[in-house]
Design a protein around this nucleic acid. Structure first.
Length: 985
RNA sequence: GCGCGCGUGGCGGAAUGGCAGACGCGCCAGACUUAGGAUCUGGUCCCGCAAGGGUUGGAGGUUCAAGUCCUCUCGCGCGCACCA
């Protein structure tokens, strides 16, 4: 299936195995044997609350068959999750198993530590490639997807991961996306109540006075109009809503894309150009959760850089809206403020301002609103700039300037977004011919338009303060606009021109308000208060985050559970949710997966499917790929539940219950709230991870889940580069195929190598040669346990054996090394073992897999020299080895357990050995001695030597004496049991 | 430009402020071998015969003691980027 590194014709292929000489150990028999064993025995099944466990299951043998029936006895849970893969046609990549191996090691470790471990796997299977393949070949996307899943599953299973496959899911299964659609209905039927600060059922929405029931009229047309207004109002408040808005359209992909899917003016997938287009689309109101998404980052254990990426994406900035009256309009007024008295001033007024700003195009302009984070610099505003697309531009442009302005607008419209945001380019812009009045000092300032002001942020207009904003400074310098200092830097030597930091306000006194002399923070406060009193401004918070564009013009995605009804009396069609009983809404069968000739989504081709008997029509857009991945971690908890998306009991057990539902902190000291460990790539920082948090918070508000955050601890694995240090790609020809590594070295070596490469989070280059290092280590482990002669006989027998005979019977020929005995371990052996237990345990707790493996190597190097190998020591070692190299560990474990009933018991649930510090204590210790910080000697002293004894012994050292002879000892530092440093002068 | 992270042998990488270079790769020598690209043993930062000296991108600083902490600087990676 994987054609990534297919050999060129005419070149010799690598031999299928043993590429580098004799096989270190028979992994080719051991690995399939144990993979089959785990599968048949369901060794890694995770148990839900209330489940009775088969008595012969190793979990029952450790924790009791009724452990999950009685809550009190239930072992602590540990939910360890991988970002599930998109099963592409290219098959598994060496990057996938990096994270999967890390989580598998942790899962096995936690099982040994007595946790009830949930470690599931599934498929994020909707997506473009299968659909594009369908367009080309006509093969159904479902079929392509199933084939790809089969390949991925085979590859993943060949690595011996301890997934609970009974919980496997695919986002493309109707049993799964039924619930994706169901969650969409919840979003559709909810609104965000700013007063309670959470999502609520749409039923709690209060209508404006004129739209409340019952209606007082009985006139049909009037009733229809009232109904329409009521519906329009309600629909505008839903968390899932339809909006005509400028969206990113990608011609190449034939669909619209979310902001998060557009990078540098190109589609994230494929790198195709995107253009702005006005279209009617489904949106999800993620902006309502901007503040929670931001502040709740504090409650979760993610890397700073990842949190920073989310913070940047949410882009909160605090400031104020300020109203600038146009010259000639004597009293610039906030029309909306007329209603202010009867509204909640904190909330409604701001909404009205926003509505007012948005409706700017539909009324006579008398004022322009700007957003600024620096209201304290208002006295330095010497001109204004509107985005060329600002709705007021045409109206305010003077006749004299109209030609210039129109020409500029045309010029800007021709530029691609990439060109527009190119920082290197020089600022451009033109004067509109109109002036505004600065509300603080009555000054007449020119209004310009320029493309350095973005229509999509704030109000699409700015007050320009060239003295204290680098962009305005650049612009003002180019166009000779006045630059007035209003902030004095704290350090008088600093030039105030272009000074953008906090300082002290100067030259900031007007007829009604003065902030001169105030430090920046105070100045902001004072002037904002004044603006609010005068109804010329409003303190506000702005977010860069936009609502989530949620519809795609695709075939291979979840259809919306929505129909469009004909509006009464010539009114436009309106949307309505399908009942839950209509779920899942299956996509129609098609033979042609292209969009229709009129540019409608492919689903529109299925006329029988679209047109319903009552004359209404189905929505033909589909959901984006991110929909399915927004909640899959919840479905794993209860993947077979047909009554609900996840059972309450299962959700509460696996996700944990917050005692204080508003704060994850309250839960810190009990169970971890949410997924205990989530591992995946950093490419999902602002897509999947933001969307999933959003959905989770909605589900939390609506009472369906018990924690406010889904993923408590998250770790990003680093990228694995090609051997040449470049990112792996087909075009470079440096892609490593896991199947090849597996064939040559086996799964255990592959797992070990991926972890030995370096710290999990780091970017690191692949090196097939280094795989041999860990492979040899596993060979040494093998030889530590097995009798050489029996192995030689085994190899001869294997060569002679038929394919059918090459099974576990042959492995039975291999005998234990005769040095392995039921003997008492010596103190030195115990010390070696316990140093290893300590290091491996600590390293696993800190996800330091590479150094844990080196500790295992140190143990083996030492143990190879032992004349007698005590079984007890080797058993503990195998438990330590098991998470890393499970197949080999199981095989050797079964050889150690010679009695017939323990012979075939898995060691997956064998209790992790306890580290005993007493066993590390020696009778003597080696203490480095420094003179002036330089190492001069290492002395041997009794283990119980106190500081005074250390000092005496250090001074007695011949080597040390040479360096202190004839000098004055100024100071002696003794670090207890560690080091002596003698300072001499 | 802003933010975050990182600079250690030939290479991947180890080092709670306390013996720099664990472990592995590679390389060198030896053993066993018909042979080995298998395995085992020893060696392997630099200068020096040695004693000793030097060494964690560079320059300062704090400390009895700095790869580790602080300041500046250079280089690399990632993220954001005209966000008012």
């Amino acid at each position: 299936m994987n054609s990534a590194i297919a050999p060129l014709p005419g070149l010799p292929q690598n031999p299928p195995s043993m590429a580098s000489g004799r096989r270190q150990y028979p992994f080719h028999l051991i690995e399939p044997k144990w993979q089959q064993f785990w599968d048949v025995q369901q060794t890694f099944r995770a148990w839900n609350p209330g489940e009775k466990i088969a008595g012969n299951h190793p979990f029952a043998q450790r924790h009791g068959a009724d452990a999950m029936v009685h809550d009190r006895k239930a072992p602590p849970k540990f939910y360890i999750l991988d970002m599930f893969p998109y099963p592409s046609g290219a098959g598994l990549h060496v990057g996938h198993p990096e994270g999967y191996t890390a989580t598998d090691i942790l899962a096995r470790y936690k099982r040994a530590r007595g946790f009830n471990v949930l470690h599931p796997m599934g498929w994020d299977a909707f997506g473009l490639p299968a659909e594009q393949y369908a367009v080309k070949t006509g093969q159904q996307p479902r079929k392509t997807t199933e084939q790809n899943i089969a390949t991925f599953k085979r590859q993943i299973q060949s690595l011996g991961f301890s997934y609970d496959w009974s919980r496997e899911l695919a986002t493309t299964d109707p049993d799964y996306f039924k619930w994706t659609q169901w969650i969409f209905l919840k979003l559709y039927n909810s609104w965000f109540n700013r007063k309670t600060n959470r999502a609520e059922s749409i039923e709690t929405l209060e209508y404006p006075p004129g739209l409340r029931l019952p209606f007082s009229t009985s006139d049909k047309t009037e009733l229809e109009n009232l109904e329409l207004s009521r519906r329009t109002f309600r629909d505008s408040k839903r968390l899932a809503f339809v909006k005509e808005a400028p969206v990113w359209w990608c011609e190449e992909l034939g669909t619209v894309l979310a902001n998060e899917e557009v990078v540098d003016g190109k589609s994230e997938v494929g790198g195709f150009p995107v253009v702005r287009k006005l279209m009617r689309q489904w949106m999800l109101r993620i902006t309502a959760y901007a503040e929670k998404l931001l502040t709740d980052l504090e409650t979760i254990d993610w890397s700073d850089s990842l949190k920073e990426m989310q913070r940047n994406w949410i882009g909160k900035s605090e400031g104020a809206y300020v109203c600038f009256g146009l010259d000639g309009h004597t009293k610039p007024a906030l029309e909306a403020s007329r209603n202010a008295a009867e509204s909640d001033p904190e909330i409604i007024n701001l909404e009205e301002i926003e509505a007012f700003i948005q409706s700017a195009s539909s009324r006579k302009t008398d004022s322009i609103w700007v957003f600024t984070t620096r209201p304290d610099t208002l006295f330095g505003a010497t001109y204004m700039v509107l985005a060329p697309e600002h709705p007021c531009v045409d109206e305010i442009t003077s006749e004299k300037q109209r030609a210039v302005v129109d020409a500029y607008k045309v010029e800007v419209a021709k530029k691609s977004d990439l060109q527009r945001t190119d920082l290197a380019k020089e600022k451009t812009g033109v004067f509109t011919g109109t002036y505004a009045i600065n509300p603080v000092n009555g000054q007449r300032i020119p209004i310009w338009i320029a493309d350095y002001v973005l229509a999509s942020y704030g109000t699409g207009a700015i007050m320009a303060v060239p003295a204290h904003d680098s962009r305005d400074f650049e612009f003002a310098t180019k166009f000779n606009l006045p630059i007035v200092q209003v902030v004095q830097p704290l350090d008088p030597k600093t030039d105030w021109r272009g000074f953008v930091d906090d300082g002290t306000s100067v030259n900031s006194s007007g007829p009604e308000i003065s902030i001169t002399g105030l430090p920046t923070a105070e100045a902001k406060r004072k002037i904002t208060n004044w603006l609010e009193t005068k109804q010329l401004g409003k303190k506000t918070v702005n977010y860069r985050l936009r609502d989530w564009l949620f519809s795609r013009q695709r075939y291979w995605g979840e259809p919306f559970p929505i129909v469009w009804k004909k509006g009464p009396g010539g009114q436009p069609p309106y949307h309505e949710a399908l009942p839950e009983s209509a779920l899942p809404v299956l996509p129609p069968e098609l033979t042609d997966y292209k969009p229709t000739a009129s540019g409608e989504p492919p689903l529109a081709r299925a006329k029988d499917w679209v047109n319903l008997p009552d004359g209404s029509q189905r929505e033909t857009n589909t959901m984006p790929q991110w929909a399915g991945s927004c909640w899959y971690y919840l479905r794993y908890l209860d993947s077979k539940n047909s009554a609900t998306f996840v059972g309450k009991e299962a959700a509460n057990y696996w996700m944990g219950v917050s005692p204080n539902p508003q704060s994850a902190f309250g839960n810190r000291h009990s169970a971890t709230p949410g997924v205990d460990l989530y591992v995946g790539g950093t490419e999902h920082a602002v897509l999947h991870l933001l969307y999933a948090r959003f959905w989770h918070k909605v589900l939390f508000d609506l009472g369906y889940v018990s924690t406010p955050e889904p993923f408590f601890k998250l770790v990003n694995q680093g990228l694995i580069l090609g051997e040449d240090g470049q990112k792996m790609s087909k075009s470079r020809g440096n892609v490593v195929n896991p199947d090849d590594i597996l064939a040559d070295y086996g799964a255990d070596a592959f797992r070990l190598y991926e972890m030995f490469l370096g710290p999990l989070q780091d970017t690191k280059p692949w090196s097939t040669r280094n795989v041999e290092g860990v492979y040899r280590f596993l060979g040494r482990v093998w030889r530590l346990f097995v009798d050489e002669k029996s192995e030689t006989e085994f190899e001869q027998a294997e060569t002679a054996a038929t394919e059918a005979q090459r099974h576990r019977d042959l492995l039975e020929m291999i005998k234990l090394d005769s040095a392995i005995k039921e003997a008492l371990a010596t103190p030195a052996q115990l010390k070696t073992l316990h140093a290893c237990i300590k290091k491996v345990t600590e390293d696993l707790d800190a996800l330091r897999f590479n150094t844990a493996i080196s500790a295992l190597m140190v143990f083996v190097n030492e143990a190879m020299t032992w004349e007698t190998k005590p079984v007890s020591v080797l058993r503990d070692f195998l438990i330590l080895l098991q998470p890393f190299a499970p197949h080999l560990a199981e095989e050797l474990w079964s050889k150690l357990n010679s009695s017939p009933d323990t012979r075939h018991a898995s060691l997956a649930y064998a209790p992790w050995p306890r580290f005993d510090p007493a066993l590390l204590v020696e009778s003597e210790m080696e203490i480095p001695v420094q003179v002036n910080g330089k190492l001069r000697d290492v002395i041997k002293v009794p283990a119980n030597a106190d500081n005074a004894a250390l000092e005496t012994a250090a001074k007695a050292s011949e080597k040390v004496k040479q360096f202190i002879a004839g000098k004055t000892i100024k100071k002696v530092i003794v670090v207890p049991k560690k080091l002596v440093n003698i300072a001499v002068g």
